[in-house]
Design a protein around this nucleic acid. Structure first.
Lengths: 184, 184
DNA sequence: ACGATGTTAGTTAGTAATCACTCACAAAGA
DNA sequence: TCTTTGTGAGTGATTACTAACTAACATCGT
């Protein structure tokens, strides 16, 4: 999983082949097939690995009692963006739905990861609205789409700039913009 | 260009090969190479074709004098979303940065199309803020990122639902949500 | 009006590279 | 002795692309 992550981070997901992966690990190609029955299974495991990492990391973020819901949202996205910067492979994979050409189990796994992020955000919005920390001009679902969409757009711009732009700073600016509109 | 559009719409961009494309047109593979010097050139031309179509279509949308800036934005996105529904190939290609594995000219072309859309939106926001139709809690750049990000997210969900969700309706809901937050 | 000549647009039959994946076999430890 | 984990050498499919050739057509001097 780590070899695959590094390979994708450095050369993109198109460069992750059984051959390059086996070379990186220092094994032959058939050796990989002792442990995974297909490339699909390797990619599936990689997605699962990322999903678990994301879930554990976000759930273990510790909040102060004085933290508002907005503060919690800031902490979540800050952690997320910093992880993207240090492991660009995650971004390559999460933005690569179109590459898993009609391999349903992989598309589903990507969808699961997206759903997980959405659930974190949506729960935050709902609590914030109940606690009257956020206004409720807009429903939690649509607001979630807007927040995640804005963040994804920022990540995409970072990718298109060849990682030259400052992802953490730009992401924070977008989140602050949205919070300014919804915080009471 | 039309054959390529149909092929991608029906079977995805991974299925657009010289062989399938030549078959669709009813020519041999080498015949294609009489007109395009490489597959890269075909994809580049396709992106250019989409860009021109988008530009012409959006610029020829006619507005009433009574239209607010928000109305204009609604009209632009409505046209855009309807085009996506009738020509899913455009979406496949615009969401496929990751597929153009390190082919710089193609990534750049995609970036050009995105920039064009952004310019339309940003100009609208600026006019709206100057005319005091929108508030200016947030700068035009970041607001543009949020709007386009929200729309892209909606399109992505539509793709992941295998085109089952109602893109035009969902997109409209997201736009209305954002407008509710920025309209005075 | 007409043949010579060059250009355009097409063909059949390949090539070389890459890819995921497999076969037959070997070493080494429980 | 059997299971686990590895290897070298391949296979078949797919891919973008090319070499060699040809029929149809446009242009031109006579």
């Amino acid at each position: 999983m780590e070899a695959a992550t590094n390979r994708i981070s450095k050369f993109g997901i198109q460069n992750l082949t059984i051959k390059t992966l086996a070379e990186d690990i220092g094994l032959s190609e058939p050796a990989l097939y002792r442990h995974f029955k297909s490339k699909n299974e390797i990619l599936w495991s990689l997605l699962e690995y990322f999903k678990t990492e994301m879930k554990n990391r976000i759930q273990s973020i510790s909040f102060k009692t004085s933290d508002s819901e907005a503060d919690k949202l800031r902490a979540i996205f800050n952690s997320q963006l910093q992880t993207f910067v240090s492991k660009p492979a995650i971004v390559s994979v999460i933005f690569a739905e179109s590459i898993f050409h009609y391999e349903e189990n992989l598309s589903n796994k990507v969808a699961e990861i997206m759903d997980m992020m959405q659930d974190f955000v949506k729960a935050n919005i709902k609590r914030g609205q109940e606690l009257k920390q956020y206004n409720n001009f807009i429903g939690a679902s649509i607001l979630t789409t807007i927040i995640i969409g804005g963040m994804r757009m920022t990540v995409l711009k970072w990718k298109l700039s060849n990682h030259k732009s400052n992802l953490v700073k730009d992401g924070k600016a977008v989140l602050e913009g949205i919070l300014k509109m919804i915080e009471k």
